[in-house]
């Protein structure tokens, strides 16, 4: 089997007010269905290793995690090489349930924005209130970054992770670098 290649081959930018890096291949499974169904919840928890997150929340544990995407959609994260096995397991458990599980690992790119000014970099690009008391760790927000849809969360203070479509990875990287260019601190937060 060929080796997984991430969209930008772990490109990084460290010259600005925040460190931008592409995180390489991350396993991601989209799960759609009735989120209140016990069988779906059990299967999702088994695959992700964490509980089903509340509305607009994310729960992570090591490389695994689960994010609330919409009223009928969850995103399960795992190590890239585990995605197919977890998917097969999910599909077996959900064979008799109206649900859809798809491995979307290769359709996405994941970035990290790190540093004391990470909030400012993100706030320049997304129409989201990123004030420290409004957007906190554990929240998961689907929005847009400049012109493209993205979803992001804060695994810890001063660090954002964001997911976008692979086809716009270069755009997202470029726009993040532009927002993080040296001397561009706003010092709003």
């Amino acid at each position: 089997m060929s080796d997984p290649v991430s969209a930008l081959k772990n490109a990084a930018y460290n010259a600005g007010i925040a460190e931008i890096s592409e995180l390489g291949a991350v396993g991601m499974i989209t799960l759609r269905g009735d989120l209140s169904a016990k069988v779906l919840q059990k299967a999702a928890v088994a695959a992700a290793g964490v509980n089903v997150p509340d509305q607009r929340q994310i729960l992570t544990e090591g490389q695994g995690g689960m994010a609330w995407m919409s009223p009928d959609e969850l995103l399960i994260m795992c190590a890239y090489e585990d995605a197919n096995a977890k998917l097969a397991d999910l599909q077996e458990k959900l064979a008799k349930t109206h649900a859809l599980a798809v491995n979307v690992s290769d359709a996405r790119a994941v970035f990290e924005v790190r540093g004391p000014d990470a909030r400012e970099v993100m706030a320049k690009l997304a129409p989201v209130d990123l004030a420290p008391d409004q957007f906190t760790t554990g929240m998961f927000r689907r929005s847009r970054l400049a012109q493209v849809p993205t979803a992001f969360w804060m695994p810890q203070e001063d660090t954002f992770r964001l997911i976008c479509f692979r086809s716009v990875a270069q755009y997202v990287f470029d726009v993040l670098c532009a927002a993080a260019q040296p001397g561009s601190e706003v010092e709003y937060f």
């Binding site: 509305q55 607009r56 009223p71 989201v128 847009r144």
Partner: peptide, 9 residues
């Protein structure tokens, strides 16, 4: 989803 945002979203 309960989010309040401006119209470009």
């Amino acid at each position: 989803c309960g989010i309040t945002a401006e119209e470009t979203e």
